[in-house]
Simulated scan of single mutants.
Amino acid sequence: MPKKAGMEAWKKKRRQEHLEKKKYRYYIFCEGEQTEPQYFAGFKRLIEENPIYKDMVLIEIEPCAAETMRVIGMAERYVKKNKIQKGQIWCVYDKDSFPADDFNGVVLRAERLNKENPELQYHTAWSNECIEFWFLLHFAYYTSNNHRKEYISFLNDKFGELGIGKYQKNMKNIFDILMEKGNPKLAIRYAKRIIKDGQDKTPTEIAPGTKVYELVEELAKYLPEEIKDYF
């Protein structure tokens, strides 16, 4: 075996051993390439800085640049390729203008996959119609089913009031802005209320709505105590 190939195999083995030591494992597959990954990277950073959990929690964030059913498809291929047998697989995706069957289909596919291995569970953190609706809830309770442009306009106005310029899709500090200038605790409460009100409806029919709060609550458990209070 060539020296370089041997080194690569050794690194791969060491990485696998490192991952196996992690008790809590989260694999997050994001429809978008920047907005969602930047947001969840904020959780990852703080958790990895937390001396209590940094050696216990694994968080891997995978931008997919794909929509709805393709996101969970990419998650399945990643799981198979890396022989993942334990952990939580989270698919973060938007409704946008994609067909209802595709949007609802991700939830149905996750439910089927979850019957195969109780230690490897798939979760759907969807937003109808976009992740910006979750961001918006940090500032207000909002139930009008509008186009994403309206949600972005709302965020632009709110950011302007706060003196932090305009909302941008690829803001690297979006996590910090929402935590420090918004109210994550209220956002979770508002999102839960909306989901409860639509409990007999499909994800497509809950418009607007979001289940991103479920992943946020999971990750918030591992944040430093002084940060956890925000959630």
Score class of each variant (00 low, 15 high):
Y27E: 11
L19W: 04
C91V: 06
D229H: 02
Y190Q: 04
K211D: 07
L120K: 14
Y27N: 06
E217G: 05
D176L: 07
G165D: 08
K83I: 03
I152R: 14
A66Y: 08
K115D: 03
W90A: 05
M1I: 14
T35I: 11
G198H: 07
K228Q: 06
F103S: 03
L223D: 05
Q85V: 13
C64L: 10
E119R: 13
E180I: 12
G163D: 07
P118L: 12
K22L: 15
V71M: 10
L215K: 00
K54N: 09
N145S: 14
E132C: 02
Y53E: 01
D176I: 10
Y53R: 03
V212P: 09
E48I: 03
F135S: 03
L19V: 03
F159D: 07
V106R: 07
L162F: 13
A110F: 05
E33V: 08
F40E: 02
Y151G: 06
G6R: 08
A191T: 03
S144P: 01
M56Q: 15
D101N: 10
L178E: 03
K81G: 00
W10P: 02
Q38A: 10
D197M: 13
R193A: 09
P2S: 15
N173P: 08
K172D: 09
R25H: 12
I174K: 07
W134C: 15
G182Q: 02
V71F: 10
L155Q: 03
E225H: 13
P184R: 06
E8R: 13
I61S: 10
C64H: 06
H123V: 07
P37K: 08
E49G: 09
N173C: 08
E132K: 07
A110H: 06
S144C: 09
G105S: 08
D94T: 14
E48D: 09
R77Y: 01
I89Q: 13
T202R: 01
K169R: 06
A140C: 14
L162M: 13
L219H: 07
N128M: 10
G6N: 04
Y93R: 11
Q168Y: 02
V107C: 05
K196L: 00
